[in-house]
Amino acid sequence: MAQFRVLVSSESDDRVGREILAAIPDLEVLAYDPNEPQLSDVQRDAEILIPPYRSSHRPIPLIRQLSALRMVQLLSAGVDEWISDVPAGVTLASARGAHAGPVSEWVLSAILAQLRQWPALVRFQDTETWAHRRFDADTLDGKRVLILGAGSIGKAVARRLEAFGATTTLVASTAREGVHSPAEIPDLIPGHQIVVVTAPLNDDTHGLVDARFLSSMDDGSLLVNAGRGQIVDTTALVTELQTGRLRAALDVTDPEPLPPGHPLWKCPGVIISPHSARTVPGTNRLCYLVAAEQIRTFTAGGTPSNAAPR
């Protein structure tokens, strides 16, 4: 008889997860529908809950039905959507590390799209205009990039950028060799032509990129947000974009989803993707491979490396 039971979404995106987890000894995989408000009696006895790959917040209301719950294993890099709902004493772990490749690739593509003026080129193409010398392209080579967040995603971004001749400056919640502290940010902003946000959302990072931060950025700088929308003050960003002083590439926004009619849609110099930086083939598999390692550690009596401080 299995010692632990884990609830895994029955949706097609999570099929690979059910297959990966089924190979773990002493673990019984129970499929559940994340859209269904009630669990069966068997499902309610599960000790581990994994939210679905897409729209992972949906099963939050199911927590109160899980009296034996001991662990919530997320497939996201952060835990901000769940941390206030998971009871004390229940281990909450992320899939940190799984998203580094896909998200860092998005960051690089967003930077190059802005520097090489692809949005303008596509608009010229739409009007069948041969726009030779009618736009100002730029190069990534020689650029200085400030990266807020020195986890697996931030480090992967740095590696990709440095391969293009850019130099990077990393900032994290705690200073260490090669990584600066948040207290140093005001002095670091000037002189960097690109700022990339990959930090998690928490009390310290909420609203970190505010009006003062944005006003400290050099004229013509580019802000790239691949973290969470609430890290950036949207009103302050809109103000800067409308003047044309800054540009932005955003995978996340506040509010999210960005509603029709919001001024951010019409701002000059911004490109927006719908929180899809990680959404490429194979990412769900990467997430479940990390989740499986976290669960193996937990069921063996250890503390998962991605466990959130509680």
Rank of each mutant, 00 (worst) to 15 (best):
A100I: 11
V179S: 07
P190V: 04
G207N: 07
H192Q: 06
R134Q: 15
R212E: 13
V157M: 02
V86D: 11
R133D: 15
V171W: 00
L161E: 00
H180T: 02
A113K: 05
N202V: 09
S215Q: 15
I83H: 15
W106C: 04
A137H: 14
W130R: 11
G178P: 01
K143H: 02
L115M: 11
D85V: 04
K143R: 14
R116Y: 14
P119N: 11
T168F: 01
V122D: 14
A199C: 13
T167E: 08
H99C: 07
G142M: 08
R176Y: 02
S152T: 14
G191H: 07
A137C: 14
V197D: 12
W106P: 12
I83M: 13
H180W: 06
A158E: 04
V157K: 01
Q117P: 12
S109L: 07
L121V: 13
D138K: 12
A211L: 11
R133P: 09
D80M: 05
L201I: 04
I153Y: 06
W82R: 12
T205N: 10
A156G: 13
H192I: 03
D136Y: 15
W82M: 09
A100D: 12
I189M: 04
E162F: 00
R159F: 12
A211E: 15
V196G: 04
A88G: 10
E128M: 10
A199E: 05
I153F: 05
V90S: 05
A158N: 06
G97H: 05
V145T: 00
T139E: 15
A166Q: 07
T174N: 13
D210H: 01
N202M: 08
A166C: 07
D126R: 15
L208Q: 06
L201M: 09
